[in-house]
Design a protein around this nucleic acid. Structure first.
Length: 490
RNA sequence: CGGGAUGUAGCGCAGUCCGGUAGCGUACUUGCAUGGGGUGCAAGGGGUCGUCGGUUCAAAUCCGGCCAUCCCGACCA
């Protein structure tokens, strides 16, 4: 582990990349655009998974698993859907290799060509709706509320660790409903769950809203989303929830008999969040020293570092530490005691800061004498000496304090970097000089949206829920029902 | 697919202009000291110089092809 991270303020991209690698979260795989998620990065994902999975199950969803391969013909059944994904699909055309003529290599066996190419799923609507056709006959089979944890492949031209990789891990929920309203409520409910997860667990404030038609999921009638602001002033789409209307039901002929005995098409939704959330977590809180993890998602919440010279000292310290550890574990706090003598205390301090461990305890001979322990918090880097007797009450409240402090910090940052503008001139200036979210009036047309994107690289991140006051479009002067959120985005 | 750059030890790089037989930092191994913020000193191990070909007495270095990676664009539910 080499020391030193590039400065966040000097080169945000480099800082991010190095941080991901040095904190031992992930690295590039031999296949371009894919990534290897290392145990530390994966353990954060596992925490996210566990939390989200519980939220899904609490709202009546069940997990299932569908195949990785999608026959090409499935994908083409929904016209808009295939349009949206066709350009980034990995395609399997053969099922066998053979030795090359000179025996030095293996080549694709031309005799092993598949009758129909298989697409490595970029998303699973098509395979899943193909099954739903068989699973749904009556209104009694509805609603069908299914989620799957899986990997998907989208062959992006340009990739970034966690934020956009060719292969990524995610959950995708796919539900079927008897009525339009119920499906709409589901779409909204899941978007709310994502927002709650982002804010309460990731400590990342998000704006909930609807996508414009051009930013919608391919095949959806409405896409809701949560949008977060990163520390470099760029926006990141953190989760999406789609109202699919009856589009996939039509494409896959999924009909049910309603209470009146009449055939009707079912209404669908789909929603997902991915390992991109880990990227959001990193970019939202971390600093020049490394990761800053919210206690609720940190794989290690408290690390204890002993300071010792001799084996006798270590033994005495360890006895104390074990008692502390037991007490904290009993309160459901994850504690790591790093008593390795192969690394020095200073090295360990830097290492756990890099990895974003929220609280560090250091205990040495001096503390044994005074019955104290040094407590350092990662978010503010403040250190204080705490009496051993009060520690078990102090730590849980400190963890809560850190959780809310980093949320507040991120919220303040977003508020300071969200600006209302009324003219296109100001819009361009703010975007270039400050970045962040820009709240402005837009006439609602795809043409204006496209023109702005073309000229400024800013996209409409969302049309925030909750409405707002009407006004005039900053570009065309036409009337606008409410302000929308623009930003340059990842 | 266009524009730019890079490929030398696990990682980060110098050496290339001006050809002469492989170097620095870090990491690793060993020893001694050290230990409350990335410890110091000493010794040691580790290299098809991306790849294929050409020029030359001699190529990491010059020339050509290929491959790969990164950055900028195009692309990005």
């Amino acid at each position: 582990m080499s020391k030193g991270l590039p400065k966040r303020s000097e080169d945000y991209s480099l800082w991010y990349n190095e941080l991901v690698k040095k904190a031992d979260m992930a690295e590039n795989s031999p296949v371009r655009g894919c990534m290897i998620i290392k145990p530390y990065g994966y353990s954060i994902w596992e925490k996210m998974q566990a939390t989200l999975d519980k939220m899904f199950k609490d709202t009546g969803h069940q997990n299932a698993y569908f195949p990785l391969f999608i026959p090409k013909s499935y994908l083409s059944k929904e016209a808009k859907h295939v349009d949206g994904f066709a350009k980034e699909c990995a395609v399997v055309t053969h099922y066998r290799l053979k030795a090359s003529d000179d025996g030095q290599d293996v080549v694709v066996d031309p005799d092993a060509k598949l009758e129909e190419p298989l697409i490595v799923r970029p998303t699973s609507e098509t395979v899943i709706w193909n099954s739903y056709k068989n699973w749904i006959q009556s209104y009694r089979d509805l609603p069908l509320l299914i989620n799957q944890w899986a990997n998907v492949v989208r062959w992006e031209m340009r990739t970034r660790l966690f934020l956009r990789t060719s292969e990524f891990l995610w959950q995708e929920g796919h539900t079927a409903h008897a009525t339009k309203n119920e499906a709409l409520r589901e779409t909204e409910q899941m978007n709310n769950i994502y927002a709650r997860f982002a804010e309460e667990f990731m400590a990342v404030p998000v704006i909930k809203g609807a996508k414009t038609a051009s930013e919608r999921f391919a095949g959806a009638e409405e896409t809701y989303c949560i949008e977060a602001l990163m520390q470099d002033g760029k926006a990141l789409q953190a989760g999406t929830s789609h109202f699919l209307g009856q589009n996939f039901a039509k494409a896959f002929d999924v009909k049910f008999t309603n209470k009146e005995g009449k055939l009707d098409l079912v209404w669908g939704t789909s929603w997902g969040v991915s390992t991109r959330l880990i990227g959001a977590l990193i970019m939202a809180h971390s600093d020049d020293e490394g990761l800053v993890l919210p206690p609720k998602l940190a794989p290690i919440q408290v690390v204890i570092v002993p300071i010792f010279k001799s084996d006798e000292q270590l033994e005495a310290i360890s006895a104390k530490v074990h008692a502390i550890r037991e007490k904290l574990l009993a309160k459901g706090i994850s504690v790591k005691y790093d008593d390795r003598d192969t690394f020095k205390p200073g090295w360990k301090f830097a290492e756990y800061e890099l990895k974003g461990v929220p609280v560090r305890l250091a205990i040495g001979p001096r503390d044994l004498e005074n019955k104290t322990v040094e407590v350092a918090r990662r978010d503010t880097k403040e250190k204080q000496v705490v009496n051993l007797d009060t520690l078990e009450d102090f730590i849980p409240s400190l963890l809560e304090d850190i959780q809310s402090n980093i949320y507040q910090k991120a919220l303040t940052f977003r508020q300071e970097n969200t600006r209302e503008v009324d003219t296109y001139e100001d819009f361009k200036i703010v975007l270039d000089e400050k970045g962040g979210f820009v709240s402005a009036h837009w006439d609602g047309t795809a043409e204006t949206e496209e023109k702005i994107k073309e000229e400024t690289k800013a996209t409409i991140r969302c049309i925030p829920f909750g409405g707002g006051t009407p006004g005039k479009c900053m570009v065309t002067g036409a009337s606008s029902a409410q302000r929308v959120i623009f930003a340059r985005a990842y």
